[in-house]
Write a protein that binds this DNA or RNA. Sequence first.
DNA 1: CAGATGACTCCCA
DNA 2: CTGGGAGCCATCT
Length: 128
Amino acid sequence: MSETTPALYERIYLVVKQIPAGAVSSYGDIAAIVGGGCDARTVGYAMAELGPRDDEVPWQRVVSRDGTISTRGLRQRELLEAEGVTFDSQGRAIMARHRWRGPDAAWCEANHFTPLPPRDEPEQLELF
DNA sequence: CAGATGACTCCCA
DNA sequence: CTGGGAGCCATCT
C-alpha cells in the first residue's frame, strides 16, 4: 500500500460490493463494469491487495470465467457454498446459474459505471 | 522510462 | 484434460 490512493481499486471494490450473496461474477466482468482501462488481471491484483481477512468486500464472489477458483489455501469455495452457490464435481461454480448480471442500470449511471455488455446466453435457471 | 510481477483470459497443440 | 504462449493493465523497484 503506497501513499497513493488509486481510485481505480476503490471502484473495483465498490462494484464487488454490489454482488448479492448467492451470486458470483468473474474478474473480466468486474473489469468491464469498472471500465476505464481496467482488465481482469487488474481486478485480480486488486483482490490480492485487499487481503483474505477483509470483511468489507465479498471478494469470494469473484471467480474465474469458467467458475474455477484460482485462490489456493483460501476457503473461497466454502464461503460460497455457505451462501448457496453450487459447485459441480470438477470444483467449478455453476456460472450458468449463479452468474451475476451486473449492478442495476440506475446504479451504474449514478456511479458512472458501465453496464455489463449483453450476452446471448439463455435465461438462468431458477434456484429450487 | 524499463523490467518484473500478478487471485486473468483466450488460443492452439 | 494438460501445458505453453501471447495479450492485457496497474503497481512497484
